[in-house]
Design a protein around this nucleic acid. Structure first.
Lengths: 164, 164
DNA sequence: TCCTTTGTTCACTTATTTCTGAACATACCA
DNA sequence: TGGTATGTTCAGAAATAAGTGAACAAAGGA
């Protein structure tokens, strides 16, 4: 098995974990599942990537929480195996949905709550600007909600838009 | 001056620096400039946020590199003052453009380069999936390039889309 | 039952990032 | 020229995040 392509992909995917907010190990484990066709058990992943079992265990837990991998079972084998979502668009949408839920939504709620208490326009505060910010965030929130509600719909919209 | 709203906003904005990849101090300084109408000099920012001058200095440098603040001068005052971009949409677009350039573009190049060397479809590698990934990334790249080329155009597209 | 395999948790180590104060540079003014 | 105000850089400190190994738990199988 020619492993260099897999290694390269794992490195590349690992180094961009920051784009969606996970650490290198998590992204590397994910990269390994993406780049290979087989399903992997914990020990094999640890050996293949040269990291500890406990690290793999927590990384897999994290990847499950993002909804981008799933367990599989081989008959007669007690171990848990993992594969990633084969559809790359579905994968990306899972990540974006989760990231929105975890980081963007709370921000929007926060800003809304802050502006609730700011009806009286006190001195020195750029209240107009903060209101524009709130509106912008709400627009993005609505846009993201709409786009992320269905991969297929979003893909159609993107193609339509790109062909104009 | 009622500072609690500013403080709340600074906290909120500071805690979401990770969304666009800057640390808390950088985001807090930015938050302060966003939430207030005045222009700020280094020392006053340090005092207001309770952080060191050197931290403010590097944070301002970082914010300049993202293109989200600019220097102003008061006549008869030797100090450098800073204000943020008043248009929140322009601000957001600056951040997105810069983040794309710094993190997304290199990823796309990487994946492309890796797949260059993978014409022969070796065993155990999900080559089809990696090609789909590459295509998806290229689609997003094209989409982002188009959307980020003009705030006004993008805003028009978003409104059009949201009203359908 | 006891042993083995598998996976998780957690206290601790290691690595990385962030922040600071001091030293330095620069520009202006007296 | 010296003195003061302003801003930057950088080595090290402090804080935070990540990774490890050992202990533990659970589940089969002999």
């Amino acid at each position: 098995m020619d492993t260099s392509i897999v290694d390269d992909f794992v490195d590349s995917w690992g180094s961009m974990g920051s784009l969606w907010g996970v650490n290198t190990s998590v992204a590397r484990v994910h990269g390994l599942l993406i780049a290979t066709e087989s399903s992997w058990c914990l020990d094999d992943i640890a050996q293949r990537l040269g990291i500890s079992k406990s690290n793999v265990s927590t990384s897999l837990k994290e990847l499950r929480s993002w909804g981008v991998i799933k367990k599989t079972f081989l008959s007669g084998d007690r171990r848990e195996f993992y594969v990633c979502e084969p559809d790359v668009w579905k994968m990306l949408f899972s990540i974006m949905r989760e990231r929105k839920k975890r980081e963007f939504d709370p921000l929007v709620s926060n800003i809304q709550a802050i502006l609730e208490n700011a009806k009286e326009s006190p001195d020195g505060i750029a209240l107009e600007r903060l209101k524009q910010m709130e509106q912008m965030l709400e627009t993005f929130h609505a846009l993201a909600t709409k786009l992320l509600s269905s991969e297929n719909q979003a893909r159609a919209i993107i193609s339509f838009f790109m062909n104009k």
